[in-house]
């Protein structure tokens, strides 16, 4: 028993020692990804974790905690000590998730402090070639001329929001067919059973190049460098429909400011390196380093947009 206590004391002293001395990070850092392994968000998180590991000298370990629209991953980070060793790799839908669940499982603005946004995944408006429309205007005209509404596939709250905003802006009525993910919707979209979808450009680009799908517009502020001929939705005359698809690192709100700053700087530096830029570029991620202050502002803007939209349409409420 005595011996046991001595060991315990020694361990405690060691822990105390490492807590007081030295600079963050001193042990491996866990980066919680709120989506399953293998998706584009997971891939981006792993590229970044790899870069941060070599930049800060400690392994950044990606841990996938998917489920409940990300709430499980978020709770896992909030339950861990706010010491900078458990971080959240979050995505744009986190703003809306608390509004869609009662009681709200967390408050993004209150519970987290943003470290940095690294960019966003571009979304696009895809239609099956059987739809006689080569532009957004033709699509709107066609949809209005039909007796029966067109079917659209949607899998995430963000996609549903974008489609609902699109319908609101254009006055078109369409029927929603829900899927678990965009990959699950692809077979029906390729076969023309579902006529259109707002989806991630990277997931269906190959089919566009092959002529199996038509990409009418991108939901990005400017045209994509890889697709200079495809207009943005706003250029095509529809305002106000977009999918919030930013990818960003968050730390729990009580994390010491120096740690957040150090991380923020490290992310900014990593995004400047060629290796990271090429890898993220291959994932078709639009790299855009957003510092914490700008991200906070963006989140509060999106917060009111979602709130307004959900109240008006009742979208997403069971």
């Amino acid at each position: 028993m005595k011996r046991y206590l001595a060991w315990l004391l020694l361990c405690g002293l060691l822990a105390l020692h490492s807590a007081l001395a030295g600079e963050y990070p001193e042990k491996p850092v866990t980066l919680v990804v709120m989506l399953p392994a293998g998706g584009p968000t997971d891939a981006a998180a792993r590229v970044l974790a790899d870069a941060l590991s070599s930049a800060l000298g400690q392994p950044f370990v990606v841990e996938n905690r998917p489920g409940a629209d990300g709430v499980i991953g978020v709770r896992a980070v909030l339950d861990a000590p706010a010491d900078g060793y458990t971080l959240l790799f979050g995505i744009g839908s986190l703003v809306a998730v608390p509004m869609l669940q009662t009681p709200a499982p967390f408050d993004l603005q209150r519970d987290f402090t943003p470290v940095a946004a690294i960019g966003s995944y571009p979304f696009g408006l895809f239609v099956h070639p059987s739809v006689p429309a080569n532009s957004v205007a033709e699509l709107i005209a066609y949809a209005k001329s039909r007796e029966e509404p067109l079917f659209y596939a949607s899998s995430t709250p963000g996609e549903t929001l974008a489609t609902a905003e699109f319908m609101q802006a254009t006055g078109v009525r369409m029927s929603r067919v829900p899927y678990k993910g965009f990959a699950q919707a692809l077979p029906d979209l390729l076969a023309g059973r579902v006529q259109l979808a707002f989806g991630p450009v990277s997931a269906a680009l190959a089919h566009v190049q092959d002529g199996k799908l038509r990409l009418l517009a991108t939901l990005t502020p400017t045209r994509l460098p890889a697709l200079p001929t495809v207009p943005t939705l706003e250029e095509a005359g529809v305002r106000g429909a977009s999918v919030p698809s930013w990818q960003a690192i968050f730390a729990p709100a009580q994390t010491p400011a120096p740690i957040v700053e150090r991380l923020s700087r490290a992310v900014a530096a990593a995004l400047q390196t060629d290796a990271v830029r090429t890898r993220l570029g291959r994932l078709l991620l639009q790299i855009e380093m957003t510092p914490p202050a700008a991200l906070t502002e963006r989140i509060s803007r999106e917060h009111s947009r979602w709130q307004h939209f959900i109240e008006e349409t009742g979208t997403g409420r069971p």
């Binding site: 399953p36 293998g38 998706g39 891939a43 692809l186 269906a204 680009l205 190959a206 089919h207 092959d210």
Partner: peptide
């Protein structure tokens, strides 16, 4: 040929392919 994963492992393979700059699909 279609870039459609039949399970989680296949979804991971797609992730691996895109990281190596291969777009799974008919091409």
């Amino acid at each position: 040929t279609l870039g459609i994963p039949s399970n989680a492992i296949m979804a991971l393979m797609i992730g691996a392919m895109t990281l190596h700059d291969i777009q799974p699909g008919p091409q």
